[in-house]
Amino acid sequence: MTHTMEPRVSTATAPRAKGSATLIGALIVLALVAAAQAFGFLTSPPDRDMGHLQKIMYVHVPAAWNAFLAFVVVLAGSVMYLWKREEKWDLLAASAAEVAAVLTALTIALGSIWGRPTWGVWWTWDPRLTSTAILLVIIVGYLALRSFVDEPERRARWSAVVGILGALNVPIVYMSVRWWRTLHQPQSSPSTVDPAYAWGLRLNAIAFLLVMIWLVRARYRAARLERISELAAEREALGGRG
């Protein structure tokens, strides 16, 4: 019990090298976001109706798109786990789920900040906002479920089912503005906005995409290390030597 962690990892230099590579990666993606934001701010004229509030588009829309993409990774990881029963797919889905939860919450928060001055309200129960709130509840429920179930195989199976359910909600959220009447405007894309705004939107979407990939990757690595140390602790508890 006194020396649980110490003898496990023999390659003492590897984690430090990886750590600095991770830090450099983080600085690079953050610099890209800053550059894309600066580009958006410097190149776009004020919108004819909402003036400079249009610039919230450069964070809200990329956050929403990449939240959807993170859900696609959750879906892929969950389906692959149920098919192959390999733990790595479960860990990938769980890592993407955390990022999806953060980006969905960010989308709602930024949308709310945008809605107050433009629509006049922070929130309204229109189909787009309601379905997005359901999406957030499902993915937070997914993360809660994982923390409640201790047995790894069962945890993986149950969360894969919830992950697939959550991802199936994504097309509903996306199409809600076409299928039903909403306060939210239809989907924005480079083709619906003035050419002066299109590149600001594209570049910020790409910058957010890199942040999303970086976060999923970092979280996936951490999840693998957690499992390795869990397994080592189990082995030691069973009386083995390593």
């Binding site: 004819r48 909402m50 405007q185 003035d194």
Partner: peptide, 17 residues
């Protein structure tokens, strides 16, 4: 409560639009 429903067509204003 009065809420504004605007479009997804963001445009810089043009003359006489």
């Amino acid at each position: 409560s009065v809420m504004v429903k605007h479009s997804n067509e963001y445009r810089a204003p043009k003359h006489g639009e």
